[in-house]
């Protein structure tokens, strides 16, 4: 089992009330599984992904990733280890404005304690069609280019679990096709597992499973995925 989520709950305070966004969410992600999460806006997809990425703490429940465990009271070090063990792409690409595209892509290595795999990062730039933009600053990049740099950054560490929040939300069809092509290839050839939040029909059929967030729970969608796992 790659990732296991047990009884996960998350609520937010809104004014004087508590709003429960996720309730008793269960999830088992097998190794090499590609999972798509859908759901209407505001349903809690980003909330779930932040919990899976270790950048938020659950109010209840537990998460397991290999040896790692996360819960409400996990110490800071566990969170750091978890974050370093996953590749996470955030819904809106945030690049550091003072760094070049290349330096932004290498950022995970600065904090991860791994040696940067430059050839790999170079290849990712190429595969996403942004070769030659390595020395540009974020303000010299288009929204789609910045999104792809953020994707390279999320994949740079070659973690076995990849999490992406609407990675093609700001891309045109060609860009989206390149991104899905790369993700599917990494999934098939490198066995990288993925949880991807998206509504893009291009990928729905390619995923092993499609789940939707509904009323704070993860529900198996009617769409049938591919059956190679």
């Amino acid at each position: 089992m790659m990732l296991e989520v047990i009884d996960l709950s998350r609520r937010y305070r809104s004014g004087s009330q508590w709003v429960s966004v996720l309730q008793n969410v269960q999830l088992r992600l097998r190794e090499g599984e590609l999972l798509v999460v859908a759901g209407r806006s505001g349903s809690g997809k980003t909330t779930l992904l932040h919990l899976l990425a270790g950048i938020d703490r659950p109010d209840e429940g537990k998460l397991h990733l290999g040896e790692l465990v996360l819960s409400r009271n996990s110490p800071e070090v566990s969170l750091l280890r978890w974050r370093r063990a996953v590749g996470f792409m955030h819904q809106t690409p945030v690049l550091i404005p003072t760094l070049t595209a290349w330096e932004n892509a290498l950022l995970p290595f600065r904090y991860g304690g791994q040696n940067p795999d430059l050839a790999w990062v170079k290849l990712l730039f190429k595969r996403l069609g942004i070769s030659g933009l390595e020395n540009r600053r974020p303000r010299q990049l288009s929204g789609g280019q910045a999104t792809r740099v953020a994707l390279v950054r999320a994949l740079a560490r070659r973690n076995t679990l990849f999490l992406a929040d609407e990675p093609t939300g700001r891309l045109d069809e060609a860009g989206a096709t390149a991104v899905w092509g790369l993700l599917l290839e990494l999934n098939r050839q490198e066995g990288i597992s993925g949880v991807v939040v998206t509504h893009d029909p291009l990928i729905l059929k390619q995923a092993h499973r499609v789940l939707t967030v509904q009323e704070g729970r993860l529900v198996e969608a009617v769409v049938s995925g591919r059956g190679d796992l």
Binding site: I55, E76, L80, R83, F88, H90, V94, R110, Y111
Partner: peptide, 16 residues
């Protein structure tokens, strides 16, 4: 704040 948040999300510790 956002830059720091992204660095933290990538695994940067408080001391980093």
């Amino acid at each position: 704040a956002k830059e720091v948040a992204i660095k933290r999300a990538l695994g940067a510790s408080r001391s980093h």
